[in-house]
Design a protein around this nucleic acid. Structure first.
Lengths: 157, 157
DNA sequence: TGAGGGCTTGATATACTATAACAGTTCATA
DNA sequence: TATGAACTGTTATAGTATATCAAGCCCTCA
């Protein structure tokens, strides 16, 4: 009985756990986890889906936390650099990382129906890296994004 | 002694071979390989690197083949649909496919130094699909993009 | 304690990427 | 030759991202 993020779960835990992990990581490493940065992370955590920068900005603006693109892009840049959020290249959108603090190349599953995005367990990065190495290519970062249907949306189609 | 596209090679062959393959494929399938479409494909073939749509458009415009974005995006859409070019999501750019006509989910190596892009042999898509399947996710399309340094640029750094 | 420096934020402007919508043309074929 | 489907031309606009400069905050070290 696999338990993972496509299924129903106590979401408030996801949010608070990840936020705590991020706070601890910032504390440890002397990073400034400012209000805007925290709020952007929180917004992304509160959904299990990718959000565009301008969607996030809209929420920030309503709350009086800044209304111009650089505000949110700078926050996303900080969060991305420190592994708290990932960019989904295929969607030009962003998702909160489910294990903040650990440096890793994630692999994603994107449901084209409900737009939920979930990080894959055991991403096949080492195989990709070694395949590349056999062609003399030195890999530094990998993007893996699988688009398709999540369990729920398979049923309802 | 591996021979692949990062190394020096008779590039005119790449171009003419791929173009011929595309012509044959279109002929067989009743597709209209119009001048604009051919020219866009040719432009992409003539480089081993990803080009932005507007870079291509600029060349087209100089040659009097259309000066507005939809011209190039429509051509790219056609070429993409039929597997002649691929989009590099990470770069918002496009590359010519090296085996046009065969429907496949490609995996790419992108050199961050010289910006050359090469398709990987034996992409690990089946492993990604089965990893996803074990989480109940049905994969329809996969993006794999490895960024790093090509053999040449490793030497010169 | 206060001057300097580094980082963060605010604000304006602009660059880059992509598509919607409609009019006009071409071309195969009924 | 009328018709319809697909392609092209054109205008307009939507969506994504960054450069730049000014201003504020906070730490620290003389």
């Amino acid at each position: 009985m696999p338990s993972h993020e496509f299924q129903a779960h106590d979401h408030s835990h996801c949010v608070s756990d990840a936020m705590n992990a991020a706070l601890v990581h910032c504390e440890k490493n002397g990073l400034k986890f400012t209000p805007v940065r925290q709020r952007v992370f929180e917004i992304l955590l509160s959904e299990h889906k990718a959000m565009g920068a301008y969607d996030i900005l809209e929420i920030l603006a309503k709350e009086g936390m800044g209304s111009q693109p650089p505000v949110v892009y700078r926050a996303l840049d900080f969060l991305g650099t420190h592994g708290f959020v990932h960019k989904i290249e295929k969607l030009n959108a962003f998702v909160a990382c489910e294990h903040p603090g650990s440096d890793h190349d994630p692999a994603f599953m994107i449901c084209r129906s409900c737009t939920k995005v979930v990080e894959m367990n055991g991403s096949p990065n080492s195989e990709i890296s070694s395949a590349a190495k056999s062609m003399g290519f030195e890999v530094e970062a990998i993007v893996v994004e699988a688009e398709g249907l999540c369990p729920t949306c398979q049923d309802t189609e």
